[in-house]
Design a protein around this nucleic acid. Structure first.
Lengths: 196, 196, 196, 196
DNA sequence: AATGAATGAGGTTTCATTCAT
DNA sequence: GATGAATGAAACCTCATTCAT
């Protein structure tokens, strides 16, 4: 059973993720976070050292969950199946934590960036899982030996992220399986027309 | 020959794009923009109604250039060649206007967003060009008839954008043709290993 | 017992009235108001939505007090006595809240005006009380039946205001009763010389 | 025939008076003045040393005209007739130069005031004419000997000013003669009802 | 005689943070 | 454990003034 403090922190997490996803880190104020969480402004500072610290913990927490979801999906599968499963897991994660996904896109792909560490974290953890799967597929002979694994992993991650956000924005009613199928087809090179 | 005002506006455009790409819209101050452009702060406001207006015009201008580059690349080519060319053009654009590309990713993929109009603009103009190419490929029998063109276009755009930015960040020395080749292979489904 | 917030707001009211009376609304800065009230600039904005809102609440508050003072003075008196009393009350009010009276003159008699609402308020509330007294005097047969009550009320109000401010500026030592007597004589038509 | 410069200055006078009457001196910008006058901003500074100088010349010019109008009206009349004529002249002046009258009220009745000189000027010139008339009436035995001439002059001036501006605002269609008649009745003490 | 782009001091407003309750 | 009034640095923006044309 969570303590009162736990519950307050959780409420602040959620409020912060939603607001930052909508307006960005800088444009989100501590006042707004407190209001949406239903607590007084002082309470934010009773629970977190600063606005930046709240955001940092948030990112860490979210990226950890994303990476864990991807790792779990890949475990114990044959390489190509694992790739499909990882794509499915990324889609599912975005479907459930859409706000966090937008936050990821919006705040981490900067040039100099105040959150460059976080960005590296994401590449290393989330894209790293995809790269591992691709490497296994290459080792298994499923993908050709000279594939640039790092670049391909980055491509897969970005492709899924972009498509997933367009999905949530433009056709949220569409079932996940549908989107998943299209993405897998794209990845497997199955979009060619009838042999001529 | 550009007027004095024209030249000043151009300098402000450039300064703003770079800064916003690095720190985001909210975290970039008008002072910084003015300083980098080498003008006084008041000059920013003499030339643009507000910080938001400057950013708005900026997005419009950049998206227009990107869409034009993609359209030009596609023109007069057979569908699948056009797809390769469009990917190449997007890569080239990002290589040249990296700052603008980061800004696009960082500021437009928000949920509610103050720049939702801009986001729609991008989807309609830039991704629209890709969708047109894919549609032509389907009509030509190069891609299968039931392909979800909209989703595929979004996937291509996001994949290229993500890869390109990782390329600029992690291995800027690598030649564009190299990256282009990998992306085209991915798109054409040529990454399968030796037939088993 | 007033809350802390109440006390701060009151201090801000007083500081603002004095400064605006001296320099006008536009020429008075929020910095000055905060300094005279002995609080930080941010505190002004914690207590009022904006400089304009502070001024608006100020006017409302002051006009309400003025109208109340005039109404109280008139109550339970015969019409002509009531008129004398109302003039006395206006004089006393200006004597005590000179700053507010100057502010009234300076900021509300504009043409298009951002404070036209406030101006109308004043006419309706303060001048309205005088008009009521005059109307009662007409009904009582003390003043002639075809008197333009609205115009006369406006005349009385303006006459007293102008005289009172000249009094405070030029001969502040002079007792109120003296000024009151002269004004009442003027109003009652007792300034004619010896019958010829 | 006025020179080109003369005409420009005149247009700037008029634009400035109207704008300052509406929004006050501080709230009126040089940009607005230039725009309403139909000239470029630089032209304002080609013709006047500063915004304050423009306003100063404006006040001087206007007060001079007002005082002259009052003096002319009084000349060569018997004291009490002169009083009526002066009131009529003040009304006529305000009817014609309403904007200037509002400006006078709004900017000169301040406490500390940046335009205190101007305020003194007005009292001395405009109210002074009225005081002279009243003094003559006292000397002539038309008004009682112990009348406080200064205070009465101030009362007359303020009464007329207030009534005139309410007239222009609330019932501009009403003829001047009507307003004049009511004011004169008030001044002559002719508002008493039927003798009881 | 007039212009309008440019300036920078100074204004209003926002907001992360502190602290007494 | 939580509050909310207060703070002041720093943001956006305005505007009187200058000056090259």
């Amino acid at each position: 059973m969570p303590t009162r403090r736990e519950r307050t922190r959780q409420r602040l997490y959620e409020a912060a993720v939603e607001l930052i996803a909508e307006h960005g880190y800088s444009a989100t104020t501590v006042d707004q976070i407190a209001e949406r969480a239903g607590v007084a402004k002082g309470t934010v500072y009773y629970n977190f050292a600063s606005k930046a610290a709240l955001f940092g913990e948030l990112l860490e927490y979210g990226v950890e969950r994303l990476a864990a979801a991807l790792r779990t999906a890949a475990e114990g599968r044959a390489p190509l199946d694992a790739l499909d499963a990882v794509v499915g897991a990324e889609l599912a994660f975005i479907g459930q934590y859409e706000a966090f996904a937008r936050l990821l896109l919006a705040e981490t792909w900067r040039a100099g960036g105040d959150w460059q560490n976080a960005a590296r974290l994401i590449r290393e953890r989330a894209i790293g899982v995809i790269a591992d799967v691709l490497r296994a597929a290459v080792a298994n002979g499923d993908l050709r030996a000279d594939l640039d694994v790092g670049m391909a992993a980055s491509a897969v991650f970005g492709m899924v992220l972009t498509v997933a956000l367009d999905w949530r924005t433009l056709q949220p009613a569409r079932p996940l399986t549908d989107v998943h199928a299209t993405l897998v087809d794209l990845l497997r090179g199955r979009i060619a027309g009838p042999a001529t």
